[in-house]
Design a protein around this nucleic acid. Sequence first.
DNA 1: CGATAGCTTGAGAGTACTCAAAGTGGGTGG
DNA 2: CCACCCACTTTGAGTACTCTCAAGCTATCG
Lengths: 224, 224
Amino acid sequence: MYVTTPTEFAETYCVTPLQSARTQAAAAHLKSGACLYFEGDEVVWLYQVTSGVLRLSRMLADGRRQVIAFGYPGDVLGFPSDGLHHADCEALTDAVLQPVRRAHLETGDGDPALHTALLQAALREISAMQDHFMMLGRKSASEKLASFLCVLAERVGEQRGTCKQITLPMSRSDIADFLGLTTETVSRTFTQLRKSRIIAIENNNTIIIRRADALFHLSLTEAD
Amino acid sequence: MYVTTPTEFAETYCVTPLQSARTQAAAAHLKSGACLYFEGDEVVWLYQVTSGVLRLSRMLADGRRQVIAFGYPGDVLGFPSDGLHHADCEALTDAVLQPVRRAHLETGDGDPALHTALLQAALREISAMQDHFMMLGRKSASEKLASFLCVLAERVGEQRGTCKQITLPMSRSDIADFLGLTTETVSRTFTQLRKSRIIAIENNNTIIIRRADALFHLSLTEAD
DNA sequence: CGATAGCTTGAGAGTACTCAAAGTGGGTGG
DNA sequence: CCACCCACTTTGAGTACTCTCAAGCTATCG
């Protein structure tokens, strides 16, 4: 999941499970905190998330980190480049994944429908990343966090009375490294949203969106 | 072209022209300043750059712009998502492009080698964009500009005596919108690099790299 | 119930931004 | 051929946002 420019209307996400008639591998179960692969590993499998949330990240030599994306159910992770993974992937919750042989992406390998589905997932990934550029390069801290919460609400928000509630399996510093901010700034921005009564913070991992329209507006506009 | 973390050794770029035995379309010639496509256009063709430089960008409603990438010879432009372009594409110089039918990417369509080449180009694109995230989210102005110049030097730098020279077909504000900075900051950072004798500015569009090692070091390290 | 990691808050500093003005260069028309 | 014009770039001054460093707070887990 990237932070795309949120749309007013719910988008249709590819939550369709990838089906492979042949070479059906058993689902992979990952414990929270377990790593699926590391940067530099050879790609043997791609994975579609069935349940749970994963974190893709890259590190700089001096320790600075960028979280590339969060993997939510339906997302396909582990696209190879030159046959290698170029990010680390860690489970933020217990997770179930459907492995798919890399050959299904690269050679088709007797299952054209699966090949096409993987290709379309890769193309959607490119498009989503382009939106994310805009967010990283051109948005302020409050716009970034508002965009993030909007996308999560739309994708995995649960209706709760008249409001939507979202669960954050990632830490503040994961969010910070995803949005190109510091944990302190993320925390301050959460507080600011809470004080302006746009969100409520039930606990650190549970956010209730009280005024979705205001949040959406903030995601696109500098504070006035 | 994205700003990837520069490597010390020259990478091998895919400058291999895409070959299509059938459905060979005539090369497209574009004048400097001409637009190849706009955000929202339906994708009919992908294009491999033969010569020239193009700019891919997206706009926010309030005018903020993010330059997604610059397209240099060998690059493939116009990957569709849901059949549509999701960026504007404009030629920065006169350019020649080799059009490839979208079907060659999406259905294979009788030319497996071309299909594979396009798929690999898409996968490389994903990897390069992930590097670019690190740059947008986590690097300072001088690191950003140094990274940018390093990548350009490696990719299209011309040897000139003991130094490398690069030609910048894009404006300062194109560079700023690519790196997530303002034109003023880009200009000041250029001046700073010139005063520290790491680069020389022959004219606005021609940069000579006097100390490639220092530039490379700057691209990864906060100023000390 | 204490230890610890994660989160929040505060104060101060620094980087990049904004607004403004001057400088530069390329292109056009007189 | 030169002068003017316009767009682009550079430079300056002041501001603001985010970061850094530091301390206190809060939850979760032995």
